[in-house]
Design a protein around this nucleic acid. Structure first.
Lengths: 210, 210
DNA sequence: GACACCATACCAACCGGTAGGTATTATTCA
DNA sequence: TGAATAATACCTACCGGTTGGTATGGTGTC
């Protein structure tokens, strides 16, 4: 048996639990999700669950970390990095986020944002794992934004980091309104606004180009 | 006894329950909030609670409606309507939202957004009440945006409604990131970005003024 | 005396977590 | 090599605190 298979085989049910947690919690929220809901979705027993995770909170933290891994792997291998111009890469990221708005809400919305909003005051450890997930993802955009600032000679009182965070604010807010209104189009429209903002920031005529 | 006093007196404990629900749910989330938590915060007994509300879900809907009343009254009497220019009124609204980012997170974040994100798939009636609250508030911005579009002669492929919703997307997303990062400054920065976007939209030189 | 309003005592279901066992695989060492 | 030992990965049955909701009774007011 190879090491890869060993790892896969050894933790197969643990991974299934994490995937199930990811899906069920996004649909029902953290508190309303019962451990047995997750076991049922994962096809494992409660005994198996508590073999891998000591408490429900520990699962939530592991799920947030798993979410970070899954999403960073997904975005790392996506094609939006291919453009030569950094601004084009940033805009392609937003296009990708817009293209991802398909299927059920629970399938494309963000586990970290959902859990953080629910438990920020009651479960600091979960909140921190979620905050790290969102902040870490935002940080992947900073180099492109910084390069775009330099290439386009934009000088203003906002930082590359704050614009990276603004993209996540727009995405998270779009999810909230899509859920509240039970309608995805508001999310798509908001990403259009975000894209327009970034184009205006970098292409406004009054800024001198390098 | 006047009608106003009658209403106040008759439903004093009911109002206290609604206010307590507003505060406790924003801090702990809907599911994790126990009815007795609300009773304790409101200084009433469980018997009183179930005299006024048949179920926990009914309370949540009433709380969302109460939230709509409280917030619309607050914004209706605020000073940002006073500017003569519609764009200035819109910008003053955003300045007000930024100025409101003070104190504890649970004190200034949005009950409707918090609850909607948590129960959108499990409690449709609560979700609809929350959606109505957010959409209704957004709608109050549409006349000023429409007037600004006409006054400034801006013509583009976005509607006044979609920009009104984008303001709420930015606000809700700012709350999510502030909670996740346990840091309000990201919310303030995001409202700065939103303000800058709106200024760029209406003041970009290529659009001809009326 | 009817009704709104509120208090206390209580219940039954739910659910996170535990107890205690078995099957399987890895490791040790004579 | 292979038996002994140990660790991993589960499984079933169950416990006990929590919690939404109820039953019932009391009190002031029109």
């Amino acid at each position: 048996m190879s090491t890869a298979q060993q790892l896969e085989g050894r933790h197969e049910s643990k991974t299934r639990i994490l995937q199930a947690a990811m899906n069920v919690i996004r649909a029902k929220g953290y508190t309303a999700t019962r451990i047995e809901d997750i076991c049922e979705a994962a096809g494992v027993t409660k005994g198996s669950f508590f073999h891998h995770f000591a408490t429900k909170e520990e699962l939530a933290i592991a799920a947030a970390d798993y979410w970070s891994e899954v999403t960073s792997a997904f975005f790392a291998e996506s094609a939006y990095h291919h453009a030569t111009d950094p601004l084009d890469r940033l805009l392609a990221y937003i296009d990708l986020r817009k293209a991802m708005l398909r299927g059920e809400l629970a399938e494309f919305t963000c586990l970290a944002g959902t859990m953080a909003q629910e438990v920020y005051a009651t479960h600091p450890a979960i909140r921190d794992a979620c905050g790290e997930s969102i902040s870490g993802h935002a940080a992947t955009l900073i180099p492109d934004i910084q390069a775009a600032i330099e290439k386009h000679g934009v000088q203003d009182d906002w930082s590359a980091e704050s614009l990276a965070l603004m993209t996540q604010v727009a995405i998270q807010g779009a999810f909230v309104l899509a859920k509240a209104r039970q309608n995805v189009s508001v999310a798509a429209d908001s990403l259009d606004h975000l894209r327009r903002y970034i184009e205006l920031l970098f292409r406004q005529p009054q800024t001198q180009h390098a």
